[in-house]
Design a protein around this nucleic acid. Sequence first.
DNA 1: TTTGGCCTCTTTCCATCGTAAAGATCTGGC
DNA 2: GCCAGATCTTTACGATGGAAAGAGGCCAAA
Lengths: 205, 205
Amino acid sequence: MTRTKTRGYHHGDLREALVASGRKLLEEKGIRGFTLRECARRAEVSHAAPAHHFASMDDLLAELVRRGFAELTAAMTAEVQRVEDEPAARLVGLGVGYMAFAAANPTLFQLMFSREANRIELKEGDEGAEGVRRLQAAVVDEVLAHASGEVRQRAADFAWAAMHGFITLVLEGEIGGRDSSRALKTRGLAALAAMAETVVRLARS
Amino acid sequence: MTRTKTRGYHHGDLREALVASGRKLLEEKGIRGFTLRECARRAEVSHAAPAHHFASMDDLLAELVRRGFAELTAAMTAEVQRVEDEPAARLVGLGVGYMAFAAANPTLFQLMFSREANRIELKEGDEGAEGVRRLQAAVVDEVLAHASGEVRQRAADFAWAAMHGFITLVLEGEIGGRDSSRALKTRGLAALAAMAETVVRLARS
DNA sequence: TTTGGCCTCTTTCCATCGTAAAGATCTGGC
DNA sequence: GCCAGATCTTTACGATGGAAAGAGGCCAAA
């Protein structure tokens, strides 16, 4: 039910159109280049039309972030389910899904994890990164079934920190700036392997 | 030579004043709330005055980032020099300096590591995070004196990723959101210890 | 089928922003 | 003492986010 050439006074599904154009715009122009009016232009409506669907620009950005977290969680879930292997390998799979999403949506990913610096507040009821946290805690618990709560928390901290830090630095070009995509993936897998190994080792401490 | 109550037509040291007010403003209002005109207001000059010292707003932001990296490198150096201990402890010290700077300058730190998403280009000759990289490579090499280049690179990747990811997630409230400052430091030190231990273990592989 | 209310979108307007251009003022070297 | 150039101000322009008011279309009740 995509729109045909001529539409009447009403758009039909402006909200979704704004989300779509907004997401593209974000990746094209960067966080600070994001503009509500440009979103409206790309959706072929007047600049004031978005106000009827999003209270403010930040409100639209918050929605993009919300959907980003949903997709991120889905990507991790999909990747971890492909691995029926040992828990440690599943931990790596989690990281692969995480990094794949980040690489495919670099600016959105950065926005999702710089909400504080960008003063973006989630709406009430929005879980934010809770899905990611739960998913990871579950896999970490597979690895550390017999460990104390504190050890498991530290393992979860560490696992998240390692994979988040790695992909963040990659997106900034600080890691593997000149590497080929292939070499970079190898480097990423090495980092994830070291992370998983560390978590496993925490089980014996 | 701080300015007294009445100044003439000329400011005296507007460039530094803009850097100072800009830095405060950045932490107060966030990245997207940063405004050149507000910087000028706080320095008590007209809104067009900054143009004579910074070609554009992005130029000022780039300068803030540049100084941020210099300070970050200095903070890490200072912290690592306090530790005359074994190399692994020095690696932890490096992380302490890194996190201390980030915690004291959360928005600037985020900006420094989201230049891609914020379309901030460093000036020619600006080293960016090279100082951090060099410092870390040196300490990693202390730990892995006899390892191959590839192992050392992977160790450096991992060490940076772990400490960067941890503090980033802390700044976002994703890690230790409700912890006391004291408990959070303990959690951070645990993460750094796990990181250092992993790097040490890489020496035997 | 008609009609009235409501949702969607447009138009218009305002304060603020970044930036450019031109004028005013000061400073330092000659 | 004087002038060239650096520093700062004034003015102006287009773009932005948002508010307000009006136009257009949809749908359910009559």
